[in-house]
Design a protein around this nucleic acid. Structure first.
Lengths: 333, 333
DNA sequence: CTGTTAGCGCCTTCAT
DNA sequence: ATGAAGGCGCTAACAG
């Protein structure tokens, strides 16, 4: 293994100098900087993370906090693993070590977090979820840790940074996309009305409908199996020409329900959803769905944590993945 | 932060002594051992991992190697995240730090692995996948790292440990389960015949059929969309009373295909699958599926890596999760 | 702008 | 069975 001393010797400088170029210390002459970098490259030097965080305890590690794993649905969303990948990638570049805090319950996650803190002086955290009654979030704040959450903060004045999708805009864009393609009766369906992100999307939908001077249909809340029959009835009565579902997997349920009405997707009803999870491509028609750009979400989170210049609250753009579940109805008239 | 010295002082011993009890050094008197442990507890001492791996470079870290993330399907299997959770949990107990190696491609994963090795002297690895042409596996072996793979080794004499599901037995049990419930014409359907695990399950199926003196149906390989019509034809002709699918998500495709024949699941055809992923509960009828016990797989992997006494190759039991897709046909006669 | 020194928390000889 | 001393690789004052 090649150490900082090897590089120093090879470059004819002291270890501190090498350390300085590694850490981008500004007051170092371009000439020696170049020489040292050449030496590092030549020797294939890679800093030892353990030594690093020993002498500079509060800086070199990022811990990624996962949501409770008891919820298989949530956890099997490739979002989490994708975020981990993205975070890993730039953390490696920036010479940060990444650890993970996991558990089946919030309590276990908290234990995991505490251990990491006591053990390795972890001070930087990325929370992959945002839940209202989450003790981990509270603990981190109480102990003055640096945290950025992918999602929203609990209270407006919490000292945490956030990266998130612009869910309001998402609602607007989805609705406009449908309207542009000749849809008039657009129904917004959700399986929960407790998450802020869902509310935001709904508001976006309503705004877009209003602006297009089309009457918005009331939200249909399908939050239990029992409401499925009511949903089917609603479909038969209202005969919407498009449905916006808040999530791919939920959209799959809707597909099954719609099928029972005898109506066809997408011929009779278009279906548009969010998250672009693998569930979008399980059954035909494959779902058109909005991708929220996990990689950028993850990268931004890391940058917010280690680059002081980054803004505190950032919104990341999304992308529509067009597949089979929405058709253009304009020429049908 | 409380250090080893604090504990030493509090217990009235030297730091070395504390270090020895932390590391289970045998020649330490029971009395002082007890006293030190009390002190540790009292002071809530947790060893600093960075310092630990600095002075004892080759021992304190485990890296978990993920499969390429480009494959969204594979990666969204909660298996990986579940394994990470289990590994995390006992690694924390055993005073090991866990890092992750990730990437979109094998090449990127390899880069990640190399970095970890050069940086933190990582020597212990858990591979979450087993693929025949995987450069990461080769690299790890060439460099004499300690590795256990969750799955199978490439060559019988590779110096790696393995934990795996007994896929042959899985095939046997699944088939027997169906037979016991009065099924006679059992069709085994797969979307690939290249993975060893699938072959093992198939062999298990054939063995069980043979032992029950029931004629085994030929394997149906549904590895492309074009073969769907052929599959539908086969169903109509053969009229199986049960189908074994190699994976939940694949089973979902089969459900859709079967529906087109006019036959009903489970009334006409039972459907049994493997992996017990969240996909099993997306559409009714919810799938009966075999759970492979991720937590134990992960825990065993860690133990194999750090406890010399553990056997090199271990099989972990599985569990059937009964839901709606299989019915008992015995009383129907 | 660069080198020297000390020390981060722990483990491991080497003594005793 | 236990303590003292040195060092792992790196960074952070402090000089100069």
């Amino acid at each position: 293994m090649v150490t900082i001393k090897d590089v120093a010797q090879y470059a004819g400088v002291s270890a501190s100098t090498v350390s300085r170029v590694v850490n981008d210390n500004p007051d170092i002459s371009p000439a020696t900087k170049k020489r040292v970098q050449a030496a590092m490259k030549k020797l294939k030097y890679t800093p030892n993370m353990a030594a690093r965080s020993l002498s500079n305890p509060k800086a070199q590690s990022i811990v990624v906090v996962f949501p409770p794993m008891a919820d298989k649905y949530q956890i099997s969303n490739p979002f989490y693993i994708g975020a981990l990948g993205a975070i890993n990638r730039i953390s490696q570049q920036k010479l940060f070590t990444v650890n993970t805090a996991t558990g089946d319950t919030y309590k276990e996650i908290l234990t995991s977090v505490k251990l990491l803190i006591n053990r390795g002086q972890a001070t930087r955290f990325i929370m992959l979820y945002a839940e209202t009654d989450d003790p981990v979030y509270d603990y981190l704040l109480e102990n003055n840790k640096l945290v950025t959450v992918i999602g929203t903060k609990k209270n407006a004045d919490d000292p945490v940074k956030t990266v998130d999708t612009d869910n309001h805009l998402l609602g607007v864009k989805a609705t406009e996309y449908l309207i542009e393609r000749g849809h008039k009766k657009i129904l917004f369906v959700t399986n929960s009305n407790e998450q802020i992100l869902i509310l935001d999307r709904l508001l976006g939908y309503q705004e877009a409908m209003f602006r297009s001077k089309i009457e918005a249909l009331p939200l249909f809340l399908l939050d239990s199996d029992e409401k499925t029959t009511a949903f089917i009835e609603t479909i038969k009565q209202i005969k919407p020409d498009a449905i916006i579902a808040v999530d791919d997997i939920f959209a799959l349920h809707l597909m099954q329900a719609v099928k029972e009405t005898g109506l066809n997707i997408p011929t009779d009803i278009s279906l548009l959803s969010f998250n672009n999870s693998p569930f979008a491509q399980v059954l035909h028609p494959y779902l058109s769905s909005y991708d929220v750009n996990v990689a950028e979400l993850g990268e931004t989170a890391v940058k917010q944590l280690i680059e002081p210049s980054m803004s505190d609250n950032i919104l990341v753009p999304f992308t529509l993945i067009e597949r089979e579940s929405v058709i253009d109805r304009r020429n049908k008239k």
